[in-house]
Amino acid sequence: MTMNLLLIFVAAVLTENAAFTYLLGMCPFISLSKSLRTASGMGAAVIFVITLTALINWPIYHLILVPLGSELIYYIVFIIVIAGTVQLVEMIMEKFFPVLQAAFGIFLPLITVNCTVLAVSLFMVIKEYSYLQSVIYAFGIAVGWIIAIVIVAAINEKLELVGAMPKGMKGPGIIMVISGILALSFLGFSGMV
């Protein structure tokens, strides 16, 4: 049982890495991977929100939507839950944890359109994971995403210092190539789980 959960986690981080294998969350990936500070801020917020929404969406889907026979509308339900959660977390943080709010508060509104969040909820339904499995999976996907964005952000900061790239390559182009090479090397883990 624990072994199974561990495998799900490792797979979610390495072999099914959100950014490098499933190509998820690329919009914030490109706009925020220019500095390590913003990348890690967004990453922390993403871990928090992804795990939380998986915690909420699983029971809603399996305990409410399926018994009612209305799985059809789960897209709408999931996205509303995500948007609502983000809003709620923002309010709670503002009120009770101003330090956290200062650290990654500005990234919260952006998370709603980070497709990793919605994708995790959709994937856990498709993969027919149990409640515990889903939560571990969600956490792993988020960890994999933050690892990816932090590595790319650090590389970007170094390239910023050197700054000798072809002009059209600067910014999104080079991020694509870096991610491509890292994605190639992440393929080395395939077959591990």
Partner: peptide, 15 residues
């Protein structure tokens, strides 16, 4: 794979 991965991690490690 390991050397390329560590190449990628190098800026982060130094930082």
């Amino acid at each position: 794979f390991s050397i390329i991965l560590m190449n990628g991690m190098t800026p982060l490690i130094d930082h």
